[in-house]
Design a protein around this nucleic acid. Structure first.
Lengths: 205, 205
DNA sequence: GACCTTCTCACCTACGTGTTAAGC
DNA sequence: TCGCTTAACACGTAGGTGAGAAGG
């Protein structure tokens, strides 16, 4: 039940739609180590959070913004001796289910006035129809954003993906450098940042 | 900057729109004691929360759902000897600013598939443009819901208000029976419910 | 003084983190 | 054993309560 794309490119009137990834530096830091995202039964948020800014929409037309995840390859990956190596038999992978941004549908003017944040999307390794996106653990994915014009006779869909945001889905972090980077930047992991700072401090008696 | 109502009634095609208040029994319990709602500088949520179910919309048309508060009279009210009495000089009151339900705009089908909850609206006694609704303390109000068809040449607005949900805006609760009823039903006031239960318990040593 | 408003506080709800040990 | 997954847990973020003292 993935997204069925009628036309990957917009028509002549819409050709100037642009979607720009926010916080590229942060994403690049993770990508250089090979990024990992936790998947759980009930669904886990992404960190970093995918944020994009959009321009070139018709302010008065109505759009929905969608997110899905494209399998970057058919491989199952393994973390061996501090390195991710592709393994097993590559199999064709279909795109994930689609997450609809909760502010959808809305006017072009709304989507363009501020960055669009996918903070609430949850990644799971089980099918349980609660709005989470199911991914296969130990497979590599690339997030992709779709802009769908709604309420028109023919739907127009533009799609954009972001290589900087590729990650491998895991049930537990493999690379401890990734863990450290998550703890460093995610405010919800503050407890572990504090613990590390206490250990590093030379002021302890 | 209140809502400007072009036409209070819909046209012939829309005449069957219905808006029903949810949790009427709870609202009635509060109304019988004369309901109070706290207003603060930064804004306070309502309890009970206003919930309505809507029917009769065109599933494929786009609507926004709005909430405002109509002054039930021009009086300033006083709580004297366990009773609310109207006082001072009745003055003409204009309706409050309007709160736009965060899921707006959306399809008729969306608004009809489940009850619509205004849990996030915040009532204030100050003007501070942060999305809160400013009300005059010690004045009586009646919540009113507007259904606005969007993206059409002429806007169609239907309005519905709910006498069961009338309340007096206050900066501190006056009637302690209202306080007790709020504590009994609002999960965020659980701390005070527990305290009361501990006092009432005969099991203490 | 009487009345109303403001602020701080303890105590909740609700839920997002990686850790750890157990399960398979 | 090994590799991967699960569930309980401590510890955060974020913010909604009325109480009570202080302010005007």
């Amino acid at each position: 039940s993935g997204l069925e794309v009628g036309s990957e490119k917009g028509d002549a009137l819409e050709r100037e739609i642009k979607v720009e990834l926010e916080e590229k530096e942060l994403w690049t830091n993770f990508k250089e180590l090979t990024n990992e995202m936790i998947v759980t039964k009930t669904g886990r948020r992404m960190f970093p959070v995918l944020k994009v800014s959009i321009s070139g929409l018709d302010p008065n037309s109505m759009y929905s913004i969608l997110l899905d995840f494209v399998a970057a390859d058919g491989n199952r990956w393994k973390y061996v001796n501090g390195e991710w190596i592709p393994g097993g038999k590559p199999e064709p992978q279909s795109p994930s289910c689609v997450y609809i941004h909760p502010q959808s549908p809305n006017f072009g003017a709304h989507w363009m006035k501020a960055a669009i944040t996918f903070s609430k999307v949850k990644l799971s390794n089980k099918m349980n129809g609660g709005g989470q996106i199911m991914l296969n653990s130990l497979h590599k994915y690339e997030p992709r954003v779709h802009i769908v014009k709604v309420g028109r006779p023919q739907k127009m869909i533009s799609s954009f993906s972001f290589p900087e945001t590729q990650f491998i889905a895991v049930t537990a972090y493999q690379n401890e450098e990734i863990t450290a980077l998550k703890i460093k930047h995610n405010p919800f992991a503050k407890a572990f940042l504090d613990a590390k700072e206490r250990c590093n401090s030379k002021d302890v008696l």
